[in-house]
């Protein structure tokens, strides 16, 4: 006779996949995060995890709006798919805009802030924040579609393992 003596696991969160689509534009990042947050409501994400997700999502979506869709000169959708895995939340962003120059993500090196105040850059922090907060950042261009995937590590509780 086999006894079921497996240890008690926290309930596996019901979330399997959240899909979000917004139109490119100045409000796209806010809209995408509001929709995503609703889809993630069942996960026990703490404020810090949610804050990191919001920041990475904002930087990725703003890059798509500003560069792929050329700041309003082009229009199109931004699609986001989020899946829960044992190692965190896997995100895939897709859009129909221009490819990332060089067909690869910027390294996102830290901006040198040890300079004269008047020489301090006013931009260039976005890719650094993405590369710093997210794991496994990868970019592919397939046909006319940009695919950017990344993973946000979560606490074990949130992953349900």
């Amino acid at each position: 006779m086999v006894l079921n003596d497996s240890p008690v696991h926290p309930a596996q969160p019901s979330l399997q996949k959240v899909r979000v689509q917004v139109d490119s534009g100045p409000m796209a990042a806010r809209q995408a995060f509001d929709l995503l947050k609703r889809g993630l409501a069942d996960l026990a994400l703490d404020v810090e995890e949610l804050g990191a997700i919001e920041l990475v999502l904002a930087e990725v979506v703003n890059n798509i709006v500003e560069h792929a869709y050329a700041n309003g000169q082009r229009r199109g959708p931004i699609h986001l798919c989020c899946r829960l895995r044992r190692d965190g939340l896997h995100f895939e962003f897709t859009d129909l805009g221009l490819p990332i120059p060089g067909k690869s993500t910027p390294l996102g090196l830290p901006v040198n802030v040890d300079v004269d105040l008047l020489d301090l850059p006013e931009g260039g922090y976005g890719w650094f924040l993405i590369q710093d907060l997210a794991k496994d950042v990868a970019y592919h261009r397939r046909g006319q579609v940009n695919h950017l995937s990344l993973r946000m590590a979560l606490s074990k509780d949130a992953c349900g393992i």
Binding site: A29, A58, N62, L120, G123, Y125, G126
Partner: peptide
């Protein structure tokens, strides 16, 4: 909430 654009604006 602040993103890199907001940070740039404060700079």
């Amino acid at each position: 909430f602040i993103d890199s654009s907001g940070l740039g604006a404060i700079v």
